[in-house]
Structure formats: C-alpha cells, structure tokens
C-alpha cells in the first residue's frame, strides 16, 4: 500500500504513558461500560416518547405510566453515560493520537456542537421528567420537549461514528469536506449507525427485563412494571434476531481484507465472530422461553449471554480498528520512548 503522501502527522515526542496492551484492554472495557449506558439513554428516552405518543392517541394511562418510568431511567443513565465516556476518549486520544486527532479536526465544528447538543438534550430530558404531572394538561408541549431531546440523542451518534470511521481511512481525508459530506464520503457509516441503534433498542429492552426481574425478587411488580418487563424481553428478542442481518451488513461493508479476517483468514477473529453469533442464538432462545413462560429460571444465563456478547462485540470492534490501521503503523510509528531531543531545548 502506498502511504507516503498521507496527512498522518508524526506522533508527539512524549511517550504513550503506559503499556500498550493494558491501554488496549482498558479502552475496550471502558468503552463498553460507556456505550451500554449510552444505549440505555438513547433507547429509554426514545422509548418514553414512543409510549407517551401512543398513549396520547389511545388515551391510555397505562402507556403514559410506562413512558414515565422509561424517562426516569433515561435521565439517570445519561449522567452515568457522560462520565463513563471520559475514559475511552482519554485512551483513544493517547494511543491513536495521529489518526483520532486528525479525524476529529476534520469535523471540528460538528465535534464542538456535541457540547451544545448534549446540554440542550439533557436539560430537556430533565424538563420532560420533572414536568410530567405539572403539564398533564399540556400533553402536546410535554411530548414535543421529549421528542426534541430524543431526536438530538438519535443524531449525536452520527458525529461519533463519522469520527471513528474517518480515523480508519487516512487515504480519504484529502477529499473529505466537513461533517455532512463525511456521512456519505466514508464507507460503513450507515451500517454502523443501524447496528448501533438496534443495539440500543436491544439493550434498553434487556435493561427493562433485568431491572424488573431484579425488583421482583424483593417485591411484587405492578401491572405496568410487569408489562414493561415482558415488553422488554420481546423487544430484545426481535431486535437481536434482526442484528444477525445488520451485523452481517456491517461486516460486508469492511475493507475486503479486514472482512476476510473474520471469515477464515484469522483464526482468533473468526472464532470470536462465530462465538458471538452462537451466543446470540442462545440468547434468543433464552429470551423466547422468558417470553412464553414468565419464569426467572434462565435469568442469570441470559445475563451471562448478554454480557459475553457485548464483550465480544467490543473486542471485535477494537480488532477491526487495529486491522485497518496496521498498514500505517510502521510508516508512522508511535512514540514509546521519550524523544529527549524533541522535548528539551538545546541549551
């Protein structure tokens, strides 16, 4: 591959502050923790307005109560999602500086807009949550507040996805022209977005199942809570089945040599992918049982399955990035030992 003309900058003269394998492990772990809470925030906020909207049409108090529960959980999880996001952002900045900083600056203004967008969305989410009773007679307004907050939450992933996809394609930087152009300029964007939004819905559904099954162990669930629990299982089941299709679409959108790593060229990566597919099928079977018979019997098995799938996804995601960047790594080395001559001025 011809990589000499690319705008990949030299690494900083100050060394990467730690063992690379440890940092790679930490980036996978902390990103997963972060993204699960992001998934929950997005799906529960959108779930809340969907339930409220349908409740308004059907004049159903039950649906409204369900929406309210979702909005409460969304507003708590969004706070956790933000703080958990700091660590993966820290690590990606220090171990992929040359690629990640450039891809960020290529969409600099969109990147900055995240601050205003998230503040707006979060404030509206609080307004949505705290005005539920007060605005009982202004349902339309209440719904619109939630709708704007949720719509913003659906938009922001594009900015992050464009950024982390763009960093994989240094040869396309030259022809990229800002954020909106980048959405169509780089491959994978829509496939990643669809995979991510579906994952959010599945995680949100699973969270409802998890939370209310756990609560059920301490107290009897109300009718609304019971419906949310079973509804959560159903959502997770159907969405997870769909993910088998959308996951495959994402795989097919990768550069051919990267895709083939997961299809026999690399034993480890192929095993990871097959295991994740197998576990997904097992999870669906467990959820199917939970859907048909309301029994906590397979509860822990399904949690274990869910956690393992998420872990495998995070691991594979990291391997995809490594595979994409591999061709550039030798040409544009990272700094592991301090380059003293470039740090301390000659006296």
């Amino acid at each position: 591959m011809h990589v000499l003309q690319l705008a990949i900058p030299p690494d900083f003269p100050l060394p990467i502050p730690g063992n690379l394998s440890l940092l790679e492990f930490l980036i996978v772990l902390t990103f997963l923790l972060h993204i699960v809470f992001v998934n929950l925030t997005i799906s529960l906020a959108n779930g809340a307005i969907a339930l409220e909207g349908v409740g308004m049409i059907k004049k159903s108090k039950r649906l409204d109560d369900m929406a309210r529960i979702c909005s409460f959980h969304a507003s708590v999880h969004k706070s956790i999602a933000v703080v958990l996001g700091v660590a993966p952002l820290l690590i990606i900045s220090v171990i992929y500086t040359q690629y990640f900083y450039t891809s960020t600056l290529l969409i600099g203004k969109a990147w900055l807009s995240i601050i205003i967008l998230l503040i707006t969305s979060f404030l509206l989410l609080y307004l949505y949550k705290f005005s539920w009773e007060k605005w009982e007679n202004k349902k339309g307004l209440h719904f619109i507040v939630g709708l704007i907050a949720s719509a913003i939450l659906l938009f922001i992933p594009f900015i992050f996805i464009v950024n982390i996809v763009s960093m994989l394609y240094p040869e396309k930087w030259e022809t990229a022209n800002g954020f909106f152009h980048s959405i169509v300029h780089y491959p994978q964007i829509w496939q990643r977005y669809a995979h991510f939004i579906l994952a959010s819905l599945a995680a949100g559904g699973f969270y409802m199942y998890f939370y209310f099954t756990w609560k059920q162990k301490k107290q009897t669930l109300s009718d609304v809570e019971q419906t949310l629990k079973i509804g959560g299982v159903k959502v997770t089941f159907w969405i997870t089945l769909l993910q088998l299709v959308f996951g495959s679409l994402l795989l097919m959108s990768f550069r051919r040599d990267v895709m083939l790593l997961f299809m026999g060229d690399d034993l480890l990566l192929t095993t990871l992918l097959l295991t994740s597919i197998l576990l997904t099928i097992v999870l669906c079977a467990l959820l199917y049982v939970a859907m048909k018979k309301d029994t906590p019997k397979w509860f822990y098995a399904s949690i274990a399955c869910f956690v393992l799938i998420v872990a495998l996804m995070g691991w594979m995601r990291h391997e995809v990035r490594e595979a994409y960047l591999q061709p550039y790594m030798d040409e544009y080395p990272r700094t592991f030992d301090v380059q003293k001559e470039n740090v301390q001025p000659i006296k």
């Binding site: 706070s79 933000v82 952002l89 900083y101 960020t104 900055l112 601050i115 503040i119 979060f122 404030l123």
Partner: peptide
C-alpha cells in the same frame, strides 16, 4: 452539574482538541 457542568467539563477537552 449533570448537564451544563458535566458537558462543559468534557467540553473544555473536546474544544482544546479542536
């Protein structure tokens, strides 16, 4: 703190990157 506070905190960092 969980809206403007947290987001401007992360925001200093997002903006200095740019």
């Amino acid at each position: 703190t969980t809206t403007i506070g947290a987001m401007t905190g992360v925001g200093i960092w997002l903006s200095t990157m740019v």
